[in-house]
Amino acid sequence: MASETVPTTGRRRSVEGKPTFAVAFTALFLFVLYVPIVVVVLFSFNSKKSLSVFGGFSTRWYQDFFNDEGLLSSLRASLFISTVTMLCSIVLGTMLALALERVTSRPARITGTVALIPLVTPEIVTGVAALLFFTGLGMKLSLTTVIIAEITFSISYVAVIVRGRLSSMSDEVEEAARDLGCTPFQALRLVVLPTILPALIAAGLLIFALVFDDFILAFFTTGIDPQPLSVRIYSEIRMTISPAINAVGTCMLLVSVLLISLSLVVPRLLGRKDSSLDLISGG
């Protein structure tokens, strides 16, 4: 299939040079990607309880959602988990990235690299390990345990994104700052941190989204506090689902559109050419 997408010319060609198959395929791909999204948005305005027959326009499921204390508390819990995880993992992950990029001794580098193992560990392993660790210590499962597990999972993601940015930055700038009399810490604060800011935004955005949507880790480590939204949705799907879920999905979609637009716009406002999105995609 891929073979037919071969262009006869390089990139940056004008519109007429586009291979029609590749474009059509991509359009179809995006269409299929959006089919369930359209269904979710459409049925969130359904006047009937049905999830397959559209009865007419209504906002009753939004009213249900905004009046459903259970759903709202789950939403708040997820927002709280994502925000705290994002902040903590950015701090720890950036430290790890800086250290990994600069540390010289082999034991320290091995330690740092071991810290990246969660990246290549399926979530279910991390989830099982976290569950056994917390219950083994007699810790009550709660939002705190979810957050600890999510941070453990997120640090390595932040580290690789930030590290990608660091490795493209030349050492000379920092050396120059040192020559001008900066302490290592000042050089870090005044030179390095501003440079990696887009990477931090990108990492923050990614972690927020991944953690907000994460189900497996949350499922294993959640306790008596309001369940994270993903866990609640899962148990509703397994049992009896309310169309209010579609309203929740539509709101989440709106927020993600907003966040992604921000990630495109904010770096530009800060006078940078590269958007945070480029950093997520590695571009």
Binding site: L30, I245, G249, L253, S261, L277
Partner: peptide
């Protein structure tokens, strides 16, 4: 950039809800 954003947006909305939409 817009296309990449367009591609990423669905993945930032709930995976479980999208799966459920598919199953219906």
């Amino acid at each position: 950039n817009a296309l990449i954003a367009f591609l990423v947006i669905p993945f930032f909305a709930s995976y479980l809800i999208r799966m459920y939409a598919w199953s219906t």
